[in-house]
Design a binder for these strands. Sequence first.
DNA 1: TTGACATGAAACCAAAAGGTTTCTTATAAA
DNA 2: TTTATAAGAAACCTTTTGGTTTCATGTCAA
Lengths: 104, 104
Amino acid sequence: MPEQLVFRAIADPTRRSIMAMLANGEHSLGDIASNYEMTRPAVTKHLKILEQGGLVKVRTQGRERLHTLQPEALRSVAEWISFFSQFWDEKLDNLKRAVEADDE
Amino acid sequence: MPEQLVFRAIADPTRRSIMAMLANGEHSLGDIASNYEMTRPAVTKHLKILEQGGLVKVRTQGRERLHTLQPEALRSVAEWISFFSQFWDEKLDNLKRAVEADDE
DNA sequence: TTGACATGAAACCAAAAGGTTTCTTATAAA
DNA sequence: TTTATAAGAAACCTTTTGGTTTCATGTCAA
């Protein structure tokens, strides 16, 4: 799972919005699409990109496809940011330690 | 400075690489460009997008343009991630608190 | 002041991104 | 067993992105 796919996935505002929605729990495609102006196929494409980034997992139930958030995929981004956090504020070294501690 | 411009800026691997380079200090355009296969105009465009995201600041000295990293611009991304970190691991609530504490 | 150097600017191009419409397939329900 | 519903798939379109080449400009140094 190349890190680049995560950065790509979170670059789009619609996809970040979908992530926020999925933070509340599992949702079907139609359920998600009803929250946006665009058509369902467009939302499908966004969900596929989120999947490729490892941020969303899908399971099929009957004729529905249920999507769940996989927020752990954001950890690589958090680690990348933590490298720079040391330059912006020493206090935020907490962030770096927190992330690293979690790798054990 | 819309948050979207930061997400856009960090989405490209070349730009993230430039950020890493600038973490070591100020660099001129030619200096930066000499590290990449692409032409200088291409690097110029990347630097402009980094500027728009607030991640790089430029000053002119003689005929050179010196670029410095502004890592604080990453804070909005860190805040966004911190919202999701609660879902992936309670221990990483440290991250959220660290970021919020820094807003005071 | 003439030449070399560091950069900016503009025109252009191919590929990727974000969207649409149309058609098909699979499941559920009448 | 029809009919309605949920979704996948493919073809297509426009705009953005990441890159190029070419030319112009400003500054430093012989």
